[in-house]
Each structure stands twice: as structure tokens, then as C-alpha cells.
Amino acid sequence: MDRGNTTAGFVLLGLFNHTRAHLFLFVLVLTVAFNSVVGNALLLLLIHQDRRLHTPMYFLLSQLSLMDMMLVSTVVPQMAAGYLMGKKFISAAGCGFQIFFFLTLGGGECFLLAAMSYDRYVAICHPLRYPVLMSWQLCLRLTVASWLLGAADGAMQAAATLSFQFCSRNEIDHFFCEAPVLLRLACGDTSAFEFFMYICCVLMLLIPFSLILMSYGLILAAVLRMRSTEARKKAFATCSSHLAVVGLFYGAATFSYMRPTSSRSANHDKVVSAFYTIVTPMLNPLIYSLRNSEVKGSLRKCVTRCAALTSKDALAGLDLAGGTKGKGIQ
């Protein structure tokens, strides 16, 4: 069998064909991606501008928004360029960087969600000791650890994947470089690495998920001991947004990476990856903005301030126009 050079690059076949139905779907996906970037950027801006949101909980949320923005930016531009301009070729280095950033951000989110669950556990079960148990120093350490663990997994898998020799037909039936899909083009035996990669994915998913389950088990026990109905409602409201995000993230990730190989198909992989990399990042800021009173209050405050500035600028423009007109009459 012919073997290709790994430095030659690859051809991404993409997500859509050039039909009317696929054009509509492409525009829809592009709209979702745009809303995802704007929504997460807005949430980042609100957390940065509003001093009431300068807490460990919202700092961790800002990191989640940053990861989601970067995830969309890693995948969508290449897909859009391939569909609109026919630039489907991607170099081996570009492919490696996509795998690295995709796994860095995905793995980082796993551990960041675990850190956020610990933050909720401390806030509900030990509210008086919150400044000590969830100090800013610990918050920063958890954040840096999330990024570093994700980056270690991304670098290891990207380097190992690109170390294989690939067959002469270097076409990837996907819209971005993803390690499991790329391995299908390898000419040699990849079973040992696929098993190792599967173990890595299981550990990256199950260890943080176990910590999340442990945190929410303790939270549930504490909530059930509460006598006040109002306190219970407040506790559930505090956790509901995070639980919804965890459900979306782990549901898509588990379906994407822990399915048996026999049940996989290229089209199913594309749809699941599109949901995981484009739709879920759009839903995260919506969940936190719709179910969180502090974020909604900050958003209303920001909108009111922008409206006031716009009105002031408009009045200044009218005054300037009126003054200029009066001088002309004189």
C-alpha cells in the first residue's frame, strides 16, 4: 500500500454539500456560531465590568466562556473557508494545532466544570467558610490546573496522532481535524494507540464527572436537611444552571467519545461534533443568563447604561445641529 508523507497535509471534505438544503443548514450553523461567540463575549464583558460579579464563581464562569469562544473559533473558520472558498486543504501543522486546541479546550472544560461544582458545594454546604475554602488563590490554581491538564492531553494526543504514516489518499471525512477520524487514514496498526486514547478520554471524562457527582451528592444531602423551603429553592436555583451545562457537555462528550467503534459512522460523527463544538457553547451563556438573577440584573444595568449613553449622544447631536443652524440664520 502507498504511504503518504505526514507533512503533505490533508483535505477536509466538510460538513455540507452545495445544495439548497445544505446551504440553509450552513447559514444556520454559521448563525449559531456567531451567536455563540457574541453570547460568550457578552458574558465575559458583564463579569469583567460588574464588580458584583467579581467572585470565584463568576471568574470560573468567565473561563468557561473563554474556552467556548476559543472552541468555536478553532473549528468554524476552517469549515466556513472550506465551504465558501473551496479551501479544504489543511497542512499537517494546522491539523495538529486543531487537534491540540480542540482537546485542550474540551479537557479543560471537564476539569473546570468539576471546579465549579466544588465552588457550589462550598457555597451551599459551608457558606460561612466560603472565603477560606474557596479563596482566590485556590480559584486561580484550579483554573490554571484545568488549562494545563487539558493542554497536556491535547499535546500528547496531537503529537502521537501525527506520528503515524498516512495513506496516499489523505481525505478526512469531517469538517475539522479530530484524532479518532484522522487515525482512520493511518496505514499502520493503530489499535494500541486507539486503546490508549480511549483510556485517556475515559479518564478525562470520568474523573471530573465523579468529582461533580460527589459534590452534588453532598449538596443534595445538605439541601434535604434544610428546614426552610425558601432556602431549598435558593440552593436549587444556584445549582440548576451549572447542572444544565454539565448535562449538555457530558452528554455530548460521552456520546461522541465513548461509543463503540462498530456503531460509529462519518455522518453521525459530524452531527455530534457540530453539536458539541458549536451548539453547546451557544447554550451555555443562555442558560446562565436566563436562570441567574445576578447575570440578568447585570445585563439590564448594562443595557440601561448603553441606552442612556445613546440618548445623550443623540441629544448632543441635536444641540450641535441646532446651534449650527442658528449661526447660519444669523
Score class of each variant (00 low, 15 high):
residue 157 Q to A: 11
residue 196 F to E: 03
residue 120 R to W: 05
residue 206 L to K: 01
residue 149 L to C: 12
residue 124 I to W: 05
residue 127 P to N: 10
residue 196 F to C: 07
residue 212 I to W: 06
residue 224 L to I: 05
residue 130 Y to A: 14
residue 110 C to G: 09
residue 135 S to D: 10
residue 99 I to M: 15
residue 201 C to Y: 03
residue 125 C to F: 00
residue 192 A to P: 00
residue 144 V to Q: 09
residue 159 A to C: 12
residue 131 P to M: 11
residue 185 L to W: 00
residue 151 A to H: 10
residue 149 L to F: 10
residue 185 L to R: 02
residue 182 L to K: 03
residue 172 I to H: 00
residue 181 V to R: 04
residue 214 M to L: 10
residue 116 M to I: 08
residue 125 C to H: 04
residue 104 T to V: 06
residue 117 S to R: 05
residue 178 E to C: 02
residue 175 F to L: 02
residue 193 F to P: 07
residue 133 L to S: 03
residue 195 F to V: 04
residue 102 F to E: 09
residue 158 A to L: 03
residue 228 S to D: 15
residue 230 E to M: 09
residue 197 M to L: 12
residue 117 S to I: 08
residue 183 L to S: 02
residue 137 Q to I: 05
residue 103 L to I: 01
residue 139 C to L: 07
residue 146 S to Y: 09
residue 214 M to I: 04
residue 121 Y to K: 15
residue 194 E to D: 05
residue 148 L to F: 14
residue 162 L to D: 06
residue 155 A to V: 06
residue 101 F to Y: 13
residue 170 N to M: 10
residue 106 G to L: 08
residue 157 Q to M: 03
residue 151 A to T: 08
residue 175 F to P: 05
residue 205 L to K: 09
residue 230 E to R: 14
residue 162 L to F: 13
residue 203 L to A: 14
residue 150 G to I: 07
residue 181 V to G: 01
residue 160 A to D: 00
residue 176 F to A: 02
residue 136 W to N: 13
residue 161 T to R: 08
residue 150 G to F: 04
residue 130 Y to M: 06
residue 146 S to K: 06
residue 215 S to D: 08
residue 223 V to G: 04
residue 111 F to L: 14
residue 110 C to E: 07
residue 229 T to W: 09
residue 136 W to H: 11
residue 97 F to E: 12
residue 144 V to L: 15
residue 140 L to Y: 14
residue 187 C to K: 02
residue 108 G to Y: 03
residue 228 S to T: 13
residue 194 E to Q: 14
residue 211 L to Y: 08
residue 176 F to G: 05
residue 163 S to C: 01
residue 133 L to W: 11
residue 178 E to K: 04
residue 130 Y to H: 15
residue 215 S to E: 04
residue 195 F to D: 08
residue 199 I to K: 07
residue 140 L to Q: 09
residue 125 C to M: 08
residue 132 V to Y: 07
